[in-house]
Design a binder for these strands. Structure first.
Lengths: 344, 344
DNA sequence: TTGAAAGCGGTACCAT
DNA sequence: ATGGTACCGCTTTCAA
């Protein structure tokens, strides 16, 4: 029986295997060493112009692209800066920060790679990152312990920087104290004469890292003042907000800190629908100072958050890479200042 | 003159170099081959239990972590799926999509890596990606040409998928036709009896890829109907919105499509401040169907956008990787449907 | 059951 | 001005 090939030779030209520098050398009629010299413009070695041309020509013809893994294997190091990709879509604030950071590190000739952390936990994740032998690792949030730092350093990471609520043994830390946000918000409400203060706590998973400290900060600000805090769990849906608004009278609150501006908008909308006057009946303050707060009516008071510039963090990383022996720095980098507008 | 070393030996213990499988072998008193067998649980080979224990013990003691680059160099392939990181912070819609995709690819045992494309252009970028020898590349937006696809495939990428406005020769394409969004919006306004329609075009750099097709789609929907379109350049600031609102009467528009919900909120707020009644004087429709549209008063009509599920794209990638010979598929994946609410 | 050795794709030293 | 070659860390035949 005659077999008819299902892919005729003409249709799928036998997939030439990926060209290597040896292929380039062969085609140009030189050695692999010469190819390497030419393509890397090695200054310690002089190659004649005709040879250079032949090598470039051959590389172009074959579509040669060097193999990064082979190169860094040989070199013994890379300039890869690894960041775990955030597990949950984080706000525009953080997005901008990341972008600026990427740009700044790029300027310093590092390659930034965001690694898809697929639900791997702390020290488990650290191992996975270590396999890539990054020169530096930047870890947002909690979740990396001293163990993880050790693993990373042991496998050659010259800098480990965490961005989070607490400093980690052995790592540089950009201390982002979310409690300061809650503190500022609560203090502001108190200064406005409010005494029965609600604090919205999002029910969405993954937000506890932010919401818990913000709540604690608010508690802290009011300690000993006689003002009382009521925790208000709230899912990010209209229905949940309406339900909360429906029992607003029973709660007897004269102010609410809504975790952030988006929850503020959600709750304000529901409160206004049920006739609660803002700020007369209830003052509302959000956080993050997003554009939407300026667009709400009444205009939303909020806590403006000052993140470090991406350039600064890039500089810290670069310093740490150049001098891995230096003692870990801890910088308190989260500035929280109230922007009073019409809603309080 | 006596030099005092600035770092005394005791302070920075000579940084032991990174342990390799050879170190593990030495410590365990076995060969590197055995180490590899044990740590990879190679089923084709049986290693005695005492030996296994000794190897694991040694690996643990040294903090051994395998070198991914060396491994994939030897193996001749990796399971890395590369995506360029978006240059500008893109909305929550897209963020969720990416996250779902990462998760789904993770389930299929791929490692997703977002590569920080630092202002490198199309085919230049393709070369940089090719150096990493990813098994698949997913490229959102335009910017990758047929040239780039060739480079990637030549260097071993078994699947190249683009997510964008047009299909690219040689690559699988998820066709996201933004024009459909504008088309739906304009058609809706027309059906509501509006004839003098403004279309907001954001001035922010990097948004043209979306805004241009949305505008064109709106134009297309009204072609031959006698309705007229006015292009409205608008920066995302309160001042710009106020300026636009101030000359609203002169423009004589009875409706406006605002590019997306966020610009809708910006413009609605400015219009309401100047006494324009929505929808009586001017109908407003946004796009993206964000939560904020539901919270605005009047509630914002919008164009709901249906993206493909991350799982679907992951499945496409996996299929393409398993069968690189197959003809590139092009799927039209962007569903646009109007959600009429109170603002139109 | 274990070990010796080849080789993946580059780079850089040492000769010629 | 070039070429030969060892080596980076790991996997995987092939032998013993």
């Amino acid at each position: 029986m005659v077999q008819i090939p299902n892919t005729p030779p003409s249709a799928s030209p036998a997939p030439r295997s990926v060209p290597t520098s040896a292929d380039v050398a062969r085609l140009a009629g030189v050695s692999r060493a010469t190819v390497s010299y030419v393509l890397n413009n090695t200054s310690a070695v002089r190659i004649s112009e005709p040879t250079r041309r032949r090598v470039h020509e051959a590389a172009r013809e074959l579509g040669y692209v060097p193999h990064a893994a082979a190169r860094s294997l040989r070199a013994g190091h890379s300039r890869m800066v690894l960041m775990p990709a955030p597990a949950i879509p984080i706000g525009p604030l953080y997005g901008r920060f990341i972008n600026e950071l990427q740009w700044a590190l790029g300027r310093l000739d590092y390659t930034v790679v965001q690694y898809g952390t697929v639900a791997v936990q702390g020290d488990e994740a650290a191992r996975a990152w270590a396999e890539l032998r990054p020169v530096a690792v930047i870890v947002p949030g909690a979740g990396l312990g001293p163990q993880g730092v050790t693993v990373l350093k042991r496998s050659g990471a010259r800098a480990v920087v965490t961005l989070g609520p607490a400093s980690v043994e052995g790592a540089h830390t950009l201390l982002m104290d979310q409690a300061a946000v809650g503190h500022a918000a609560a203090a502001h409400l108190h200064s406005r004469g409010r005494r029965r203060i609600g604090v919205v706590v999002p029910e969405e998973a993954g937000l506890e890292t932010f919401s818990r400290p913000r709540l604690d900060g608010a508690r802290d600000a009011l300690r000993g003042t006689g003002a009382a805090i009521t925790e208000l769990p709230l899912a990010y849906t209209e229905e949940a907000a309406a339900r909360l608004a429906a029992r607003w009278g029973d709660l007897g609150l004269d102010a609410v800190f809504t975790y952030n501006d988006e929850y503020a908008m959600l709750l304000m909308s529901a409160l206004q629908d049920t006739g609660v006057r803002i700020p007369e009946d209830t003052a509302v303050i959000g956080a993050d100072d997003l554009m939407l707060g300026r667009l709400l009516r009444p205009r939303l008071s909020t806590v403006h958050i000052e993140l470090p510039s991406g350039r600064d963090l890039a500089a810290l990383v670069d310093r740490a890479v150049r001098n891995p022996g230096a003692a870990p720095e801890t910088h308190r980098v989260l500035g929280a200042s109230v922007v009073p507008r019409e809603s309080t």
